[in-house]
């Protein structure tokens, strides 16, 4: 479990890369109750999607960011705040890399603020690190 006294601004948490295939999007739709056809119906998505096809739920990407941060923190109760700014659309089938970097340490509150992200291979910012944050309390 990470300790506050061992943290330095610029430290990174373990990255994770996942391929978001259609089955994964359907699984997330079922788990979350978000059945927007943009995430499973190619015909509907063809009419409204910014990519012209099915795209992943923003909240699935935020959910995987939650996993990367909470698994690193070691306890969901240590995650005090999580924000995501959704920028690039995430096409079904994309490989997405999730990560975070410590950008601020508060010695009094013993919290770390992390910039967090979900990025496509080509650099597309699905969850944009410039404005997406996690605040984590550390021992």
């Amino acid at each position: 479990m990470p300790r506050f006294d061992d943290m330095t601004v610029g430290d990174r948490i373990p990255e994770r890369t996942e391929t978001l295939d259609q089955a994964r999007l359907i699984r997330y739709a079922g788990a979350s109750g978000d059945f927007n056809p943009l995430h499973w119906d190619p015909e509907f998505a063809g009419k409204v999607s910014p990519t012209g096809g099915v795209i992943a739920h923003g909240m699935l990407n935020m959910g995987i960011v939650s996993a990367v941060v909470a698994d690193w923190a070691g306890d969901p109760g240590k995650v005090l705040r999580l924000t995501a700014s959704f920028r690039a659309a995430c096409p079904v089938g994309a490989a997405v890399t999730y990560g975070g970097e410590v950008i601020e340490l508060d010695a009094e509150a013993r919290t770390a603020t992390l910039a967090v992200w979900a990025e496509l291979d080509g650099g597309g910012k699905v969850v944009d690190r410039r404005s997406s944050r996690a605040i984590v309390r550390l021992d």
Partner: peptide
């Protein structure tokens, strides 16, 4: 015809 722009949680 919508997209999710941003999301914040305070726990």
């Amino acid at each position: 015809n919508l997209v999710h722009g941003s999301q914040e949680y305070s726990y």
